[in-house]
Amino acid sequence: MARRYREIGKAGWGYTLITSIVGLIYFSPVLWIILTAFKTRTDALAVPPKLFFTPTLENFTSVFYRSSITTGTSQSTDMALYFFNSIFIAGTSVGLALIVGTLAAYAFSRYPLRGNDTYLFIILTTRMMPPIVVIIPIFLMFRLSGLAGSYWGIILLYTAFNIPFSVWLVKSFFDELNPEIEDAARMDGASESRVFFKFCIPQILAGLSATFVFGLILTWNEFLFALLLTGVETRTVPVAMARTLGGEVGVDYGLLAAIVTLFLLPIFFVTFLLQNQLLRGVTFGTVKK
């Protein structure tokens, strides 16, 4: 891992200070949104913008609870459901894609078929093509089969969406293993499934979890499929966010910023954890180092 960041030259704390300033400037849009999430409605809309203000958690509570002025009772919004949907749909489909994708990746890496490259190319193309191209017929298909608006429909679609990514990324991990170890195990009489489960899988566990987490982020962030194919019950957070924005009654920016901030938290965490795998992840395993 350390090898990937074999840096050119060394610098001291002064350099850290300079890069931190540049980094913070680059990061400032995110910071601004997080600050907005802690502002009251008047502070959020103040001109000139307020840098110093008394923070409030009001926006975060109103993400989940809406208090009604007429009756004075608080009523829960559907946001908790949307967060659950995002997690449930992304988790299930990425898990399925990872299982199916790992099997295929192993085959592509170990049992080269005739036309291997063609299959891999077709698989990559399904990932590279604009979602809008494939969504037109899928929309019709879902409407006919009644899958539109159901959990199964969107989960199945996201599984397909994640397979190319899983196959390519996991294959890049299998390709790095030393096949001689596997051959030695076979010599000793280990069965094929034993070689796969006891030798190959444990060696790429880190890679598999990286693939899982990258898939989660991609799916967690996806918008177009979710916009067209989820219903009231299965709506995900990005769609809910876009709908808040399109509201007629004037956008509550504090509230919107709070939703975005909550949505960001897992992503920060993951970016930090996977920093060394990031390049490979974002290029679908095509660039390793």
């Binding site: 060394k10 610098a11 850290t16 980094g23 996806e222 949505f263 960001l264 920093q275």
Partner: peptide
């Protein structure tokens, strides 16, 4: 270059890429 706390500072720059388009 290598410098102290590089991993953390790098986070500030890498995060945008992981955000959702929305």
């Amino acid at each position: 270059k290598a410098f102290p706390m590089r991993r953390i500072v790098l986070m500030l720059v890498l995060t945008p890429m992981m955000l959702s388009f929305v």
